[in-house]
Amino acid sequence: MSIEAGSKLQGKVTGITHFGAFVELPGGSTGLVHISEVADNYVKDINEFLKVGDEVLVKVVNVESDGKIGLSIRKAQDRPERPERPERAPRPEGASRPAGRPSGGQRPSRPQGGGRGGARPNQPRPAVSFEDKMSRFLKDSEERISTLKRQTESKRGGRGARRG
């Protein structure tokens, strides 16, 4: 009997390891059911689900060129098909997401302008060059660093190094 991917067969568990179970198939060949293919839920200990000598229905997942046979107990079980979700209508070009629902699990972004001063709704912001942005960033950064240095130096006695 030839074993082909996709076929369902009755087999007998011949060995159990920490990573799966070996199942003897009709015709004497043996395949492996990986621990992830034993049940639909998480399997911590395969011995809770299978024992040597158990008769199991398996589905052939793959047959490799070197003769290894990959099996699945989980995929062999007939369960009702989940109803497919209806297709969503594509979002029109340029349409934004509904308010209060950020995309991709991200936090909503802050309003333009950093929240300082009054917001000017529906007014375009003046274009700022990269150089202007960079110089503003460097100025803010230097101010923060100097404040931090003053605070840490006062805690250390003003000399910069701790004396032991």
Rank of each mutant, 00 (worst) to 15 (best):
Gly160His: 05
Pro124His: 14
Gln77Met: 12
Pro80Lys: 08
Phe137Ala: 08
Asp78Phe: 15
Gly157Glu: 05
Ala99His: 15
Val38Arg: 00
Ser36Met: 03
Gly113Gln: 02
Glu37Ser: 00
Ile145Tyr: 01
Ile145Gln: 08
Ser65Asp: 14
Arg79Thr: 11
Gly100Arg: 03
Met134Ser: 15
Gly94Ile: 02
Ser103Trp: 06
Gly11Leu: 00
Lys51Trp: 03
Ile69Lys: 02
Lys8Ser: 14
Pro26Val: 02
Gly11Cys: 01
Lys155Cys: 04
Phe137Pro: 02
Leu50Gly: 08
Arg159Val: 09
Arg107Tyr: 04
Asp78Met: 08
Phe19Leu: 03
Ser29Asn: 09
Arg120His: 11
Pro98Glu: 06
Pro83Cys: 10
Pro80Ser: 07
Pro92Phe: 04
Pro90Tyr: 01
Gly114Leu: 04
Pro111Gln: 15
Gly118Met: 11
Arg136Thr: 09
Gly28Arg: 02
Leu32Arg: 06
Ser103Pro: 06
Ala95Pro: 05
Ile69Leu: 05
Ile3Thr: 03
Glu24Lys: 04
Arg88Leu: 12
Gly100Met: 07
Val63Glu: 05
Ser135Val: 15
Ile35Tyr: 03
Ser135Phe: 14
Ser29Gln: 14
Gly100Gln: 02
Ile16Thr: 06
Gly164Ile: 07
Leu57Lys: 12
Ala5Ile: 10
Ala89Val: 07
Ala119Arg: 15
Ser29Arg: 13
Ser29Leu: 12
Arg91Gln: 11
Glu142Met: 09
Pro83Leu: 08
Ile145Ser: 04
Arg85Ile: 03
Arg159Phe: 11
Gly104Asp: 13
Gly157Thr: 00
Ala76Gly: 00
Pro111Phe: 13
Val56Cys: 04
Phe49Gly: 01
Gly158Thr: 12
Gly114Ser: 07
Arg125Gly: 12
Ile46Glu: 04
Pro83Tyr: 08
Ala119Met: 14
Leu57Gly: 03
Gly104Tyr: 15
Lys149Arg: 12
Glu48Thr: 14
Ile3Gln: 00
Arg116Asp: 09
Lys8Thr: 12
Glu55Ser: 11
Phe137Arg: 10
His18Asp: 12
Glu55Gly: 10
Phe49Asp: 07
Val58Pro: 02
Gln10Arg: 13
